[in-house]
């Protein structure tokens, strides 16, 4: 059974159809890239999978391990293993990163019927992961993303990904606003999480990111549909010739 199946998905935002019948199948262990020009609906897809309010699904299905994802509350989806790394992670003043991580992790564990992680185990885990991501401990004591640089925010997303151990990671424009060094650190973090039990959907506008996170499958999105799928070489092809050729196909 595939991990994620999006079937003929049609989505409206404020009466306007944004996704016009999108189909996508992702299996465990695979890394998929979704490429496409601005406004093609990439973020919309990621939001609908994660359950962000404000989108109306008018047709189609999203199955997660065969279960109807659209029937689940967004926080239940998180507990089931759907993780979205946001393009613009928000700031939460007054809530320390450490507190946030622990609150979220325990909420997920509880929803799965697991016991809370003991504080020492939790701290040990956070320390390990943050070290590998070059996240200083004092950053964890600050408000979530408050005053973080672009790179720090993205590393914080990867930190959460590592901590929550989701089975599906959707990364929306992880490279936006990052310089090469910051990108490399974040990408290394993501690569370390690649596993036969986990799938990733890497959304990006630019081919650049895919030099660091090499995908198994590349999809090209245009105007609310997947218009072409192929191997990693498709990304390079796009880099050379641009999206224009697909605009008509859509």
């Amino acid at each position: 059974m595939p991990l994620l199946e999006v079937k003929d998905l049609k989505v409206r935002v404020e009466e306007r159809e944004i996704l016009h019948g999108l189909t996508l199948t992702v299996n465990e262990g695979e890394v998929h890239a979704i490429m496409g020009p601005n406004g093609s609906g990439k973020s919309t897809l990621s939001h609908v999978i994660a359950g962000k309010p404000g989108y109306e699904v008018t047709d189609g299905q999203i199955l997660f391990r065969g279960e109807d994802l659209l029937e689940m509350d967004p926080h239940e989806r998180a507990a089931k293993g759907v993780f979205l790394a946001f393009q613009y992670p928000v700031e939460i003043p007054g809530v320390t990163t450490m507190n946030f991580l622990r609150t979220a992790l325990n909420a997920q564990r509880k929803a799965r019927g697991e016991s809370e992680l003991m504080v020492p185990d939790f701290l040990k885990k956070v320390r390990e992961v943050s070290k590998s991501l070059n996240i200083p401990q004092d950053m964890l004591k600050r408000g979530v993303n408050v005053g973080f640089s672009g790179g720090e925010k993205k590393r914080n997303e990867v930190l959460q990904m590592a901590l929550f151990e989701p089975s599906l990671c959707i990364l929306d424009e992880m490279d936006s606003g990052l310089d090469i060094d910051a990108l490399r650190i974040a990408a290394d973090g993501v690569n370390a999480l690649r596993s036969p039990k986990r799938a990733m959907v890497v959304i990006t506008h630019y081919q650049r990111l895919l030099n660091y996170i090499v995908p198994d499958v590349v999809h090209v999105m245009s105007k609310g549909r997947v218009v072409k799928s192929g191997g990693k070489e498709l990304a390079l092809e796009l880099e050379a010739s641009g999206y224009a050729q697909f605009e008509d196909a859509a």
Partner: peptide, 11 residues
């Protein structure tokens, strides 16, 4: 901000 928290597992 709410959706960010909810996506991380909070009701």
């Amino acid at each position: 901000v709410l959706f960010y928290c909810i996506q991380r597992g909070l009701s």
